[in-house]
């Protein structure tokens, strides 16, 4: 069915936890009000970080036949926004608020050929797509890349299911993926679905845009969680409102400003819509643009920043930025 993205909250009970790769845990969550998860859908859930409830999104890897149980997989990032650590502390029997599956990344049937590209934990958004394409006898190639073999979730299972349709690349085995190799499998009738780290997705997007391919055939999803640099602590000032805050490694600018009591405009919180835009008055350091709202040249201009996902990195000392908000 076509995309549905109505948010319906329900209770979820953790009924299974298992390690599926280095720092990656799989959780089976039982829905109190079961709804169907289409390929590409995700759930939002509320995790508690330092006593505060924070919302996070995770792709649905698999659903049980009776629709009750959803599988998600979470990569623990020590210096990320903190949600993954809280998730890894969950155990069987724990309950949390979850949405019914939300679809913002629908797989369209009927294309002549498909290329799927998963990077690291991004595989969670792609597994079900691949399964459905296989089931429907579609012509597809599934590229799966990771830093190391140990860090690959579901690799053995995917190999046995997809056989030669699956192509695995592992960075630390001198087997790094060249985007050009992926593009060899892409022609005008191909739809490319990808989910992975920002470096990979950005390169594919730029490569795609430099060809005469139809850019709407490149489908991707980003939760704004991945950046060009490791997260670090930096300072944000909003002179108009007399605010100065320190943004922690596990926080976004929007979250830090909200925590200081400021009323900040933001909506998607994954770097897509542009509502959280701020104008840059002064900058000390580099911006790690993590959004997909600004174009490449807008990002290099450094006049505006998407505060819901983008961060700062220091040239030396602590980076800081002065912003004007809407």
């Amino acid at each position: 069915m076509a995309a549905t993205n109505v948010e319906v909250w329900q209770r979820g009970e953790v009924v299974g936890v298992s390690d599926v790769a280095e720092k990656i845990k799989k959780f089976v969550i039982r829905q109190s009000n079961p709804a169907k998860a289409q390929a590409g859908s995700h759930i939002d859930l509320m995790v508690t970080i330092n006593g505060e409830k924070v919302r996070r999104s995770y792709s649905v890897v698999k659903q049980s036949e009776d629709l009750r149980d959803l599988e998600i997989a979470v990569f623990e990032v020590r210096n990320s926004r903190g949600g993954s650590i809280a998730m890894h502390n969950l155990s069987v029997g724990d309950e949390l608020d979850i949405t019914q599956p939300i679809q913002n990344f629908p797989l369209r049937f009927g294309a002549k050929r498909y290329v799927l590209l998963a990077g690291g934990i991004g595989v969670t958004a792609i597994v079900e797509m691949a399964r459905q394409l296989l089931q429907h006898g579609a012509d597809y190639k599934f590229f799966y890349v990771a830093r190391s073999k140990k860090a690959m979730a579901f690799a053995d299972e995917l190999k046995s299911v997809h056989g030669d349709n699956l192509v695995i690349h592992i960075d630390d085995e001198d087997n790094r993926l060249e985007v050009g190799e992926v593009m060899k499998h892409v022609d005008k009738t191909t739809e490319l679905y990808m989910c992975g780290p920002i470096r990979l997705m950005d390169e594919v997007r730029r490569t795609f845009a430099s060809t005469d391919l139809d850019v709407t055939n490149l489908r991707y999803e980003t939760f704004g969680a991945s950046g060009w640099f490791e997260p670090e602590v930096f300072t944000v000032r909003v002179p108009e409102r007399g605010v100065e805050v320190s943004v922690g490694k596990n926080q976004t600018i929007v979250e830090a400003l909200e925590a200081s009591g400021l009323d900040v405009m933001a909506d998607c919180r994954k770097g897509e819509c542009g509502l959280c835009e701020a104008r840059i008055i002064d900058l000390n350091g580099k911006i790690d643009h993590r959004d997909v709202f600004y174009s490449a040249h807008q990002k290099s201009d450094n006049e505006k920043i998407a505060c819901c996902v983008s961060r700062l990195v220091a040239d030396n000392g602590t980076a800081s930025i002065d912003l004007a908000l809407s």
């Binding site: 709202f293 600004y294 040249h297």
Partner: peptide
């Protein structure tokens, strides 16, 4: 939107929100 329901043009911005689609039915 194109016939697949995918946004191909958005006002007042240089990029297209990747989530912007309308359901397209066979």
């Amino acid at each position: 939107y194109n016939s697949a329901g995918r946004c191909v043009s958005m006002p007042a911005q240089e990029t297209i929100n990747p989530s912007a689609t309308v359901p397209s039915f066979p």
